[in-house]
Design a protein around this nucleic acid. Structure first.
Length: 483
RNA sequence: CGGGGUGUAGCGCAGUCGGCUAGCGCGCAGCGUUCGGGACGCUGAGGUCGGAGGUUCAAGUCCUCUCACCCCGACCA
């Protein structure tokens, strides 16, 4: 799927073995390491810097909608976890438990949170008395633990970092509005900041969150044709309110249950960014999330050249301070080595400064995404760089969108569906009659799952028959192999 | 948790039928020459051979147990 000039020989081609390519890029770009604890990862500074940028931009978007940050404990009493029947059923197999503390057996075991609906519901019940207290809009940035059987760096780890938003409302309709609002926040972040095009929609009954009334998600398509759920937003209805007794006195004097929501996005996003943009030379980071947006590679032959080159580097560094995130590579490696290194690590723009540039009072800018070069005079640099970074950002989303479109297939035949899933992968859009048994049978047969029922449906409703059961179709659905 | 595979220096690997001081490439350190697409020379540091137990005159090599990781399934942000 990728064809380009090769400079780096020591990472596997995407087409040869995509998962090997992925693991090598994560390790060689110094994003993360395997931890000494099974299924856990060590996020290295370069990977964590991406996460900090994700946090910063996403957090600002949450706050624009009125959400406040808070923090709740990592340990959750067993009795809490067990209160919501579907919730415990969904999470029980992947819980980690603390059974001893201070050298003694605990009276009540404590679960390491897999998600915080229960403990936050407990607080909501205490904070909410009146309709005047609503809505409550809370978010927390934290870690959670789910004892996954099979783990992949960033995509599925036993412990992961995320944010989980939790809100309480007067009615299911209000909760629904918030659920969709936060899904839209995720879409905007994914497309505008991560340059990752996504499909927004509803999850099937089978795929929805444990304890939710409805689950919505954004789904992205990776360059190997597999889908990745990049963020979810749940309307929990009154399920948790009833289990945890979250009630309020309404204006009409009636005691009513709140409706609650929860929504989350995790370090999995980093895996998505790697797999949506990366190529055979390594990472390609969208400028808005890149730890370094520009890397300066100084070049010289003689000591005299070194002096003037470094002088110019220093001048430019001062000029750009606070305007772009800049890395100056003064290591003793050769320029060629640095070019490859920073391409592998996905820096959007490289700035080469050598004797020729000093002579011309200019620098050479090279884009990571297409390696296009341009010489820019020092006077024009400060204005040019932000524009160039935005051009790269736009090019990435356009390229990813084109890829998603080219790899979204439509079919009305199950035979063709099976063939597409087996040979081409990608999103497969079909007419669907919302049937859980059929969904499970398709999964059993093809490994493809129903990723999402897109918001974007044909005008005037869906006509015709379900591609699998032949029953009258109620919607169009997107299936894919997923991470 | 089932099926398959791999564990030897930071990374990638070789090590034959059990045999003597465990090797190679990259990386790392020092010095010198280099530097516009992964430069080179010389010198050097670095190993409880994943762990435990066993067989043997002798174990990286054979046996048992165990742990971790990777790939394929079932579970998932």
């Amino acid at each position: 799927m990728v064809d380009e000039e090769r400079f780096v020989e020591d990472i596997t081609d995407q087409d040869d073995n995509f998962s090997q390519w992925y693991n090598q890029v994560v390790r060689k770009a110094e994003l993360a390491d395997y931890a000494p604890v099974r299924g856990c990862m060590i996020i290295r500074p370069y990977g964590y810097a991406i996460w900090e940028n994700i946090q910063r931009l996403m957090d600002a978007r949450f706050k624009e909608t009125g959400v406040l940050n808070a923090y709740f404990p990592m340990l959750i009493p067993r009795s809490f976890i067990e209160k919501e029947a579907e919730h415990i059923e969904g999470f029980a197999p992947e819980l980690a438990w603390v059974t001893r503390g201070g050298g003694a057996e605990l009276e009540e075991p404590l679960a390491v949170r897999p998600s915080s609906e229960t403990i936050i519901s407990y607080s909501f019940a205490r904070w909410i008395q009146s309709y005047r207290d609503l809505p409550i809009l809370i978010n927390q940035w934290n870690n959670v633990m789910r004892w996954e059987k099979r783990t992949i760096l960033f995509l599925r780890t036993a412990e992961f970092l995320w944010q989980e938003g939790h809100t309480a409302h007067r009615s299911i309709e209000d909760a629904e509005e918030r659920t969709r609002m936060m899904l839209e926040v995720y879409r905007a972040f994914a497309e505008e900041d991560a340059a990752m095009p996504v499909i927004m929609g509803r999850k099937s009954e089978n795929e929805k969150f444990a304890g939710a009334l409805r689950t919505y998600a954004i789904e992205a398509l990776m360059r190997d044709g597999k889908a990745l759920q990049a963020g979810t937003s749940h309307n929990l209805g009154t399920n948790f309110a009833k289990s945890f007794d979250i009630q309020y006195l309404d204006a009409d004097g009636q005691r009513k249950y709140c409706a609650t929501t929860s929504w989350g996005a995790s370090t999995r996003l980093i895996g998505g960014i790697i797999m949506v943009h990366g190529d055979n030379a390594g990472l390609i980071l969208p400028p808005r999330l890149a730890p370094y947006q520009v890397v300066i590679v100084p070049i010289w032959r003689k000591d005299a050249e070194k002096a003037v080159v470094l002088e110019m580097v220093e001048r430019i560094e001062k000029m750009l301070k606070g305007k772009v995130r800049l890395k100056v590579d003064l290591s003793e490696n050769t320029p060629g080595w640095k070019f490859n290194e920073w391409e592998l690590r996905g820096v959007p723009v490289r700035m080469e400064i050598g004797p020729r540039d000093v002579q011309n009072n200019s620098v050479l800018l090279v884009r990571r995404d297409n390696r296009a070069k341009e010489s820019v005079t020092i006077g024009a640099l400060e204005a040019r760089l932000p524009v160039l970074l935005e051009e790269v950002q736009q090019a990435l989303i356009q390229r990813a969108k084109a890829f998603q479109e080219q790899n979204t297939h439509y079919t009305e035949s199950y035979e063709e569906f099976k063939q597409i899933i087996a040979e081409k992968r990608g999103f497969v859009r079909v007419k669907w009659a919302e049937d859980t048994e059929a969904e499970l049978a398709i999964k059993e047969d093809t490994k493809a799952t129903l990723r999402v029922i897109p918001f974007d449906q044909p005008e005037g409703g869906v006509k015709g028959k379900c591609f699998y059961t032949g029953k009258p179709a109620t919607c169009e659905a997107i299936f894919a192999r997923a991470y």
